[in-house]
Amino acid sequence: VGVSVTFFSCVRISTDQSVDDLFCDNDDKPNLSYHVCSRHACPPRWVAGEWGSCSLTCGEGVQQRQVKCWQILAPGFDSSVHDFLCPNDTKPEQVRKCKAILPCGPVWEMSEWGKCSVDCGYGWQVRNVRCNSHNEADCTSPQPIEKQACIQKPCLNYWYTATWSECSGSCGVKHRKIFCRNKSGHVINEGLCDINNKPLSVNLCGMGRCKHVWIPQEWRRCPVECGDGNSTRKIICGSVTNGNFKEEPDTYCHHIPRPPDKTSCSANPCGPLWYTTEWGECSKPCGDNAKKMREVKCYHKNQISENCFTESQPEDTEICVLPPYNVCIDDRRAGCDFLIKPSICERLYYRQVCCKTCHRYGY
């Protein structure tokens, strides 16, 4: 059973061509007319509902949905009927396996990224990474990175070098102070100068010829805001010939042990920190409204805490940006152009067969 709808348009009499409705008197426009156009009963059909949530929060579980038999009994009257009226061999599945969007078992947890090690130019930032079982061997997935590059605003200040000290021997070293200054000449925090272009503060010196040796520079400031970290320093290889220093490739100094370029450092003790797991998989492979999740916990000294600032709590859910579904079209046999009531699209059957039309209604 269906409905035939008669439409009316404005026509120019002289040319018998359709024109805009503004050229006709709207008061004389006939109303749409509806007529039953078939007396054949519509066959019952299966209508499947949306899949429910996965039965488990991690690992593999099951999803369920309702599947009912529906039949159009009269124009605009679509009703559920007894299941035995629909063919059993075409009934959609009601239960399927699902993979939860959070992994099971021990997982890596990461704190938020710390402050960049510099206030201008290129630097590094670090974060804490821990296995939630307290044993790193239990976390079998690759460990997330603990250090990444960061970039700040361009450096507008400059390095100022003091005079070299006296040489410590015939083949010795000399030192000098390095300051960061602004355009006014005031000494400021060295983080406001380009740390990657900082001049040497220690150098090799001598009057004759001095062999190639390693020359360690000063330790850089501790890069962490709290807790334990690692401070680094620059190590160069150099020599002196006729009283002139020359920096050489590292291979020239491989005959002697290289001094360490990293050492432990500490800042003030850390308070409670937020930790997150890696993002789980998206809840579906394509289309809109897919989401992914992660666990968010507060720790203090490796113990669960409730004292983290809620204002800085990371999000535990994020919308996935995915490719769209396949091209959305209407089934011509369903008469989708005549869906007068958008609420009909609330039914999954119509959203499927009248995909394009229901999409215009916001479904």
Results as ranks from 00 to 15, higher is better:
residue 1 V to N: 01
residue 7 F to G: 14
residue 11 V to E: 10
residue 11 V to W: 06
residue 12 R to Q: 12
residue 13 I to Q: 10
residue 14 S to I: 15
residue 16 D to T: 14
residue 19 V to R: 01
residue 21 D to M: 11
residue 22 L to R: 14
residue 22 L to Q: 14
residue 24 C to Y: 04
residue 25 D to I: 14
residue 27 D to M: 15
residue 28 D to C: 13
residue 28 D to E: 15
residue 30 P to D: 05
residue 37 C to T: 06
residue 39 R to F: 09
residue 42 C to H: 08
residue 42 C to P: 11
residue 46 W to D: 08
residue 49 G to P: 15
residue 52 G to A: 05
residue 53 S to A: 06
residue 53 S to D: 10
residue 55 S to P: 12
residue 59 G to H: 06
residue 60 E to S: 05
residue 60 E to P: 09
residue 66 Q to E: 11
residue 72 I to C: 03
residue 73 L to P: 12
residue 75 P to S: 04
residue 80 S to Q: 12
residue 83 D to H: 08
residue 85 L to I: 13
residue 87 P to A: 02
residue 89 D to C: 01
residue 90 T to C: 04
residue 92 P to Y: 03
residue 93 E to N: 08
residue 98 C to A: 07
residue 99 K to G: 11
residue 101 I to S: 02
residue 105 G to K: 10
residue 107 V to N: 00
residue 107 V to S: 02
residue 109 E to Y: 01
residue 112 E to R: 14
residue 112 E to I: 15
residue 114 G to Y: 02
residue 121 G to W: 00
residue 126 V to F: 04
residue 134 H to G: 13
residue 137 A to K: 14
residue 138 D to G: 03
residue 138 D to K: 13
residue 139 C to L: 06
residue 139 C to R: 06
residue 140 T to A: 05
residue 148 Q to D: 01
residue 154 P to W: 02
residue 157 N to H: 00
residue 157 N to P: 09
residue 162 A to K: 13
residue 166 E to F: 07
residue 167 C to D: 04
residue 170 S to K: 11
residue 171 C to W: 05
residue 172 G to R: 05
residue 172 G to M: 07
residue 173 V to M: 08
residue 175 H to V: 08
residue 176 R to I: 07
residue 181 R to T: 03
residue 181 R to H: 01
residue 188 I to E: 00
residue 188 I to D: 00
residue 193 C to I: 06
residue 194 D to G: 00
residue 196 N to F: 00
residue 197 N to G: 03
residue 199 P to Q: 02
residue 200 L to R: 06
residue 202 V to G: 00
residue 203 N to V: 12
residue 206 G to R: 09
residue 208 G to V: 06
residue 210 C to D: 01
residue 213 V to F: 05
residue 214 W to I: 10
residue 215 I to A: 00
residue 215 I to E: 00
residue 215 I to F: 00
residue 216 P to Y: 01
residue 216 P to H: 00
residue 218 E to R: 11
residue 218 E to N: 06
residue 223 P to G: 00
residue 225 E to Q: 07
residue 229 G to H: 04
residue 229 G to F: 02
residue 234 K to E: 08
residue 238 G to L: 09
residue 240 V to Y: 00
residue 246 K to F: 09
residue 249 P to S: 09
residue 254 H to F: 07
residue 256 I to H: 02
residue 267 A to P: 13
residue 271 G to Y: 04
residue 274 W to D: 07
residue 278 E to L: 13
residue 278 E to M: 08
residue 279 W to A: 10
residue 281 E to N: 12
residue 281 E to C: 10
residue 285 P to D: 11
residue 286 C to A: 03
residue 289 N to P: 05
residue 294 R to A: 03
residue 294 R to H: 07
residue 295 E to S: 12
residue 298 C to I: 09
residue 302 N to Q: 14
residue 305 S to I: 15
residue 306 E to T: 12
residue 314 P to G: 03
residue 317 T to F: 08
residue 321 V to A: 12
residue 322 L to D: 01
residue 325 Y to E: 15
residue 328 C to I: 15
residue 329 I to R: 11
residue 329 I to A: 03
residue 330 D to Y: 00
residue 331 D to C: 13
residue 334 A to G: 02
residue 334 A to R: 02
residue 335 G to D: 06
residue 336 C to F: 01
residue 338 F to G: 12
residue 338 F to N: 12
residue 340 I to M: 14
residue 341 K to S: 08
residue 344 I to T: 13
residue 353 V to Y: 00
residue 354 C to T: 08
residue 356 K to I: 13
residue 363 Y to M: 11
